[in-house]
Design a protein around this nucleic acid. Structure first.
Lengths: 196, 196
DNA sequence: ACAGCCTCTGACCGATCGGTCAGCTACCTT
DNA sequence: AAGGTAGCTGACCGATCGGTCAGAGGCTGT
């Protein structure tokens, strides 16, 4: 693995656990065993490092959202989307946790604004302007709850690899069940894209 | 309202939205319209300000947890607890959001460790060692999801007062429904404290 | 052998961090 | 009137922040 990739991975982990503002370039450099200057050689700025760390996850999220069309009202399509979404949460739990917990307060960082826009898009799919307050809450609980539980599970270690092999499948299945349950009563608006 | 209370409230809001590390005493002082020295006159240190900001919420949480006994298995008692818990989330959403999103990474801050211990206690009530992975996830999704959705709802403003009067009741009722739904299948262990 | 590039470092920069300190003002007590 | 105390401020401290810069060392192509 290249030094650049090392730095990106370390930065992502530190940003997720200690926060963007709470993580210094010096600390990232020390963990990686390089100088702070070297961090700024590979990345133009701290903000550029943040973009490199969470950008791929946002790109991936955009692809997932682009693949869903208005057929989301059909139970089968919806189930497939939820599975895809849970897989995304499992694979990118650090990035998602970062965005969930630090999304506000990291405004005017371009890559974060892009992520905010994506979540807004996703929300309109599941609960448009005409849906009830409860539907909004269901969507939020599903997204925020799944993101929280994944980041909180391996709290102190925040291990690098995915979950234990044996546990991973069980977690995935349970999450799909829970999220499906949460979103089941939500009616999907499949007409036009909402006005706002 | 005294200057001290002003500072505590401002600090809580800023800590919640920008993070503890991302909020400077200078900024808190500017918002309050006082000098930074004055902040450190009312609070011995930044950490003391954090404790003053979230301590009351943790005390309140401890009281709630102390009031529940092992009768939580009965549906009526469980429902009452969920309502009490949702009310707590509504009243203390800033503190809860702070703890949820910054709990790890704020270790060795005494007041945060106390909050962590409380959540662990709560978790053992709902899902002991013998319960399934899905039960653990259900509990986590309910807690983290409810906390996220409440902090995310009023994103930019992060208004001081509670929700709009008309909307507040609806949000409360919906949250009680959703959390009850999430926790319904979870079997409560009411024998002894789990072995591990 | 030399030139050029990539990787990387230490020294250094101004700004800001949390925190200390001496002292000012206003008010209360005797 | 004198003294004490609570509330507050500006000047200042060392440490650390993100970021710049000149240059060292290694590797490749000529």
């Amino acid at each position: 693995m290249s030094t650049r990739d090392d730095l990106r991975d370390i930065a992502l982990k530190e940003f997720a656990v200690a926060g963007y503002a709470g993580t210094s370039l010096q600390r990232i450099a020390e963990i990686a065993g390089v100088s702070k200057s070297n961090v700024l050689y590979h990345f133009d700025s701290k903000e550029a490092l943040l973009e490199a760390a969470i950008g791929p996850a946002i790109d991936q999220m955009a692809v997932i959202l682009g693949s869903i069309d208005e057929s989301l009202a059909e139970p089968k399509a919806r189930r497939a989307f939820i599975e895809q979404f849970v897989d995304f949460l499992l694979e990118r739990r650090l990035e998602v946790h970062m965005f969930i917990s630090q999304g506000p307060g990291l405004e005017d960082v371009p890559v974060v604004d892009r992520a905010n826009a994506l979540v807004a898009t996703l929300a309109t799919f599941f609960s448009s302007a005409v849906s009830s307050v409860e539907d909004h809450l269901r969507f939020g609980v599903a997204l925020g709850g799944a993101a929280y539980v994944l980041s909180a599970k391996q709290d102190p270690s925040l291990a690098e690899g995915p979950f234990e092999e044996s546990e991973s499948d069980e977690v995935r299945a349970a999450l799909v069940t829970i999220v499906s349950e949460l979103l089941a009563p939500v009616s999907v608006q499949q007409t036009h894209t909402p006005a706002r």
